[in-house]
Design a protein around this nucleic acid. Sequence first.
DNA 1: TGAAACTGTATCAATTATGATTACAGTAAG
DNA 2: CTTACTGTAATCATAATTGATACAGTTTCA
Lengths: 139, 139
Amino acid sequence: MNSEFTIAVHSLVYLAYLPDHMASSEMLAENVCTHPARIRKIMSSLRRSGFVKTKEGIRGGYMLNCRPEDTTLAQIYHAVSYGTLKPSWCTGNPEQPCLVSSNIQTVMDGIFHDAEMYLEAYLGNITIESVLKKIKKCP
Amino acid sequence: MNSEFTIAVHSLVYLAYLPDHMASSEMLAENVCTHPARIRKIMSSLRRSGFVKTKEGIRGGYMLNCRPEDTTLAQIYHAVSYGTLKPSWCTGNPEQPCLVSSNIQTVMDGIFHDAEMYLEAYLGNITIESVLKKIKKCP
DNA sequence: TGAAACTGTATCAATTATGATTACAGTAAG
DNA sequence: CTTACTGTAATCATAATTGATACAGTTTCA
């Protein structure tokens, strides 16, 4: 998994935190600690899945378009990082005569797929609002 | 997550599959499709956690030292890849005045930690033997 | 209308993570 | 005492990730 999921969650939490629920890529980048272009790329994907609306032009930026109490990290993970639990490198080789070597890829694929579903089930219990609440409880 | 978990599972499944439950790093490397030195590194770690025994010297190699029906992928994950669910790159900055930026790391750390526990709970339901059974069912 | 302040997106560079390779010391069998 | 193995570290190559730059397109507002 790369950090796009974390950045997406951070950005949505930050938007939910701001009184007007709106920020430019530059503001978000400073808060997240990354480059504005990277934020724009990820926010574009969040816009395509409907979590934010964007406004181009002067005084533009990103606006929260979902209810923090209804939006779960599972939805965000699915939109931004689905399929990234499984490592890209595989063991075994379908061409080999050995039963284990030739079939392990299929079996491990299934295991990682199911594991990701479990992961999403857990993330489905966490909302943007609950993350914000946890943040507010920090010392 | 890198592929060490997958390689560890593959190696143990392969040992369980072999009639004498024993193989050298070279045999394992060929089956897994990687370099013998990489196998040795991972098998060393599996030896330290008791899943295999190693025999040095001529006619040496790795021998299964656990019951395939009792050994779960959770145990293997924990031994080999614990803590690798969380991306290494973090958002936010504890030095910033903003509540969100300064505390998101702590909160996301907790979420990834719990997510990993969930993942392990799922992997706890899968044994080396059940993986081998799935492999044998492949066409 | 046109300058200013934004997003959208592509491309390339820099950094980091991953995997492959080599090397060699240590060990046990025969 | 040679041969065939593991243990481990170091180094190289490649791939993935992140940073940076550039520029077209859009909207606001003087």
